[in-house]
């Protein structure tokens, strides 16, 4: 199947801050981009230009009403804009991952469980999920002695 893995068309995002008198902040206006399978695209801009907003909008963390966010998911193309929550959750579970600058983490859960958790959410059996998590941690060169600790202690 051809076509980009991810395509953004004419994305606009504004925030209306009701708590501050209804002031309207427009952050993105008519953003378009396409990412092919296997491609790595870097967004480089001065801070405050909306890079993080764009990522969050693609992920659905920010609500988008204008534009399209087309993702190749399970052999079809899905538009995240206006998609039902259930579909968005499925996309996040199987197709779209998110790595943030500030990892929001539960302070009590060991690293290996945090990693394995995403696999378990997909229905992978606990023992296998843990094995694959450890393999991935090793590949990313995170020392084994840290696997049982919560990531809150990490740099």
């Amino acid at each position: 199947m051809s076509g980009p893995a991810l395509e953004v068309r004419g994305l606009a995002k504004a925030f209306v801050l009701h708590v501050q008198g209804g002031v309207r902040l427009s952050v993105l206006d008519g953003v378009s981009l396409a990412v092919q399978a296997g491609e790595c695209v870097v967004l480089a801009d001065p801070s405050g230009a909306g890079k993080s907003t764009l990522l969050r909008s693609i992920y659905g963390n920010y609500l988008v009403r204008d534009g399209q966010v087309l993702i190749r998911h399970r052999e079809r193309v899905v538009d995240m804009v206006g998609a039902p929550p259930r579909l968005m959750l499925d996309v996040r579970r199987h197709t779209l991952g998110y790595v943030s600058q500030f990892l929001r983490v539960i302070p009590r859960v060991p690293t290996e469980q945090v990693v394995a958790g995403t696999l378990r959410a997909r229905g992978v059996e606990a023992g296998e999920a843990l094995g694959r998590a450890r393999a991935m941690l090793e590949r990313l060169r995170i020392p084994e002695r840290l696997w049982a600790l919560s990531p809150v202690t990490f740099s």
């Binding site: 399209q68 087309l70 399970r74 079809r76 193309v77 899905v78 538009d79 206006g82 998609a83 039902p84 259930r86 579909l87 499925d90």
Partner: peptide
């Protein structure tokens, strides 16, 4: 085609 399959 662009779709929103209602259930996966």
């Amino acid at each position: 085609t662009i779709e929103h399959p209602s259930a996966t």
